[in-house]
Computed example of a mutant assay.
Amino acid sequence: MHHHGYLWTGPKQRFDVDALRRPPPPHPPPDESRPELIQRHREVQAEFPVVDLPPLETAYWLIKPEKLIRGTWRESKGAADWLGARLAEYAPRFTSRAARDPTRLADLVVSADERLGHGGDVSHGCYLERPSFLSLALVCCSPNRAMPQLRCPAGVTLHEE
């Protein structure tokens, strides 16, 4: 098992495009559906795997391109430390004073280490200066507990660990 880190910042308006943050339905709409519905399904099917937007379900980061991985760690502590460093880096830009609280940020790191150590994923988001948003994710890989069928985007396999 290992962990991948992901970071996304951008306009809140773009983050809110849910259609590109969720996988398309497994079956296309029927042929007799409205042409715009069929076209939209094709667009989402093509875009979801490659768009840099954070997926609504954290494990789906694993189907995104390898270039979106910001770090890989074999131990949960290293991944949690990366999360802590990113939170500290962006904290001055958090819109909420409570979100910047050092004790709260330290607790998030401890919690992330525990969750990752048990094979779970971690995802945090925070509003930055308006209208921006920060999304951080740590995803357990090889296998992912929530979606074990997903393969490692970096090609790391169990026997390499």
Rank of each mutant, 00 (worst) to 15 (best):
V110P: 00
V122L: 09
R145M: 13
D113I: 00
G125L: 11
L116R: 07
R104T: 11
A98G: 06
D113Q: 13
L116P: 10
S142E: 13
L138A: 09
R100G: 01
G117H: 05
E129T: 12
D121G: 02
C140S: 15
G125I: 00
A99D: 14
S111P: 00
A112H: 03
G117E: 05
V122N: 07
V139R: 05
A106Y: 04
L134R: 00
H124Y: 15
L108Y: 13
D121C: 04
H124K: 14
V122G: 07
A146H: 13
L105K: 03
A99C: 02
S132D: 15
A99P: 03
H124G: 01
A99W: 05
A98E: 13
C126E: 15
H124S: 06
S135K: 07
H118A: 08
C141K: 02
P131K: 02
D107M: 11
S96I: 00
C140G: 14
H118M: 06
P131M: 01
L134I: 08
A98P: 01
G119P: 08
P131V: 10
T103M: 07
G117F: 04
V109A: 01
L128W: 05
D121P: 03
L136N: 12
A106S: 12
L105M: 12
L108W: 12
G125A: 09
L108H: 13
R104Y: 13
L134W: 02
R145D: 11
C126Q: 15
S123A: 15
A98M: 09
E129M: 00
L128E: 07
L134G: 03
S135C: 14
S135M: 01
D107L: 08
C141T: 04
L105C: 03
E129L: 06
P102D: 02
A146G: 02
D107H: 11
Y127F: 13
G117P: 07
R130Q: 13
D107P: 02
L138F: 01
H124T: 11
C126K: 07
A99Y: 06
V110M: 04
P102V: 05
S135Q: 08
F133M: 14
D101K: 03
F133Q: 14
G120A: 12
P143L: 07
A112K: 09
D101M: 01
D121A: 05
P131S: 11
E114V: 12
R145N: 09
R97W: 06
D101Q: 01
A112F: 01
T103Q: 10
T103S: 10
L128Y: 06
G119H: 06
P102K: 01
A99V: 08
S111Q: 13
R130G: 08
H124E: 15
A137F: 07
R97M: 09
